[in-house]
């Protein structure tokens, strides 16, 4: 095949691949939407938690996978969103959309206030700074009586939507969380494909070159840090809408580490891979843990080691490899 033919072949594959992706996306969405119709309350509740956690993981992927900033601080913004949504639920309104917006703003503002220093660092220093932010916010939640200190915030009434009755059935809360998560996913995917996303990927690859093209990497990184804070805060609000209880454990180190683990397992930067990773991680931690005598963290550790050695680019990397082999390009 000549070079020109190869170019044409690649161009020819593109639309088909996009169409294929769209079909898969619609099928997955339909399956997810139909889940409450066939599954019991307990699995639906588990799936709701996975979706909320996946939104947090999405924010970690935006920073770690897309921009190249490994973070252990996103649980702080997730927690800020969860607490704010719960406070709004307890004191102001049971309207889930208001709570969601409040959680988004809380995550955004907390990230904007704490991120300016962090985004000037890179690599391990950035990781340590975000860890410090996470631990500080955790400390505040653990000691501040207004948010229940170490007891957490209980007594959040069931959410309502558009002035309707309280959503008591697990299926309705699930649909709300699913709809919100899908919108957030689409928004993040759009950002990654936008010129701004291209800027972020450029910074990830070579910061000095971006400067030489007139960009200010620290500003762009601060922007994505705030955005990721808003995404994590939204995830927190969704978590609270389902759990109706928020405790310092929800924004602790473990949550931050599990979110980063989900990104590594799923394949950093692909967005959908880390969402799968989120499902795997929560299932192992909460559902499989009992079956293996409470050794969930050990299993996760082994999965992590296996992924790092066997699938350096995560589940998404594996999928890309299979696709390439099918097309005979590799």
């Amino acid at each position: 095949m000549s070079a020109a033919e190869r170019t044409q072949a690649v161009d020819g594959i593109r639309p088909r691949r996009t169409a294929g992706k769209a079909v898969v996306a619609v099928a997955v969405l339909l399956l997810l939407a139909a889940a409450p119709l066939v599954l019991g309350a307990y699995p639906v509740s588990t799936m709701t938690r996975i979706l909320a956690f996946a939104v947090l993981v999405l924010s970690v992927d935006l920073l770690t996978g897309v921009t190249g900033l490994p973070t252990l601080g996103q649980a702080a913004y997730f927690g800020a969103g969860a607490y704010t949504a719960a406070l709004v639920g307890i004191h102001l309104t049971s309207d889930a959309s208001v709570q969601l917006l409040a959680g988004l703003v809380a995550g955004l503002v907390t990230a904007a206030l704490t991120g300016w220093v962090a985004v000037r660092a890179r690599g391990v220093v950035f990781l340590m700074l975000t860890l410090a932010i996470g631990e500080s916010v955790h400390q505040v939640a653990d000691t501040w009586s207004v948010v229940g200190a170490s007891n957490g915030l209980a007594g959040m009434p069931p959410i309502t939507l558009f002035g309707g009755p309280p959503l008591l059935a697990a299926g309705f809360v699930y649909w709300w969380v699913l709809a919100a998560a899908v919108v957030v996913f689409a928004a993040v995917a759009l950002v990654v494909r936008s010129p701004y996303g291209r800027t972020l990927r450029g910074i990830r690859d070579n910061e000095a070159r971006m400067r030489a093209l007139g960009y200010r990497p620290a500003l762009a990184r601060y922007g994505v840090f705030c955005l990721a804070g808003a995404v994590a805060g939204t995830g927190g609000a969704l978590w609270a809408a389902h759990a109706r209880f928020v405790s310092p454990g929800d924004l602790g180190f473990e949550v931050a580490a599990l979110a980063l683990l989900s990104v590594v397992i799923g394949g950093a930067g692909s967005l959908w891979g880390p969402c799968l990773g989120a499902a795997l991680v929560l299932l192992v931690r909460d559902n499989l843990s009992a079956a293996v005598g409470g050794h969930g963290p050990l299993v996760l550790g082994l999965v992590f080691v296996a992924v790092v050695f066997l699938l350096p680019r995560g589940v998404a990397g594996l999928a890309a490899g299979i696709r390439r082999r099918k097309e005979g390009l590799s």
Partner: peptide, 19 residues
């Protein structure tokens, strides 16, 4: 730059689009 330093993971169109 010496050694060219194009953005390796970005496409040609994206490399140019950045500039």
């Amino acid at each position: 730059p010496q050694g060219r330093r194009v953005f390796a993971p970005l496409t040609v169109a994206e490399n140019l689009g950045l500039a």
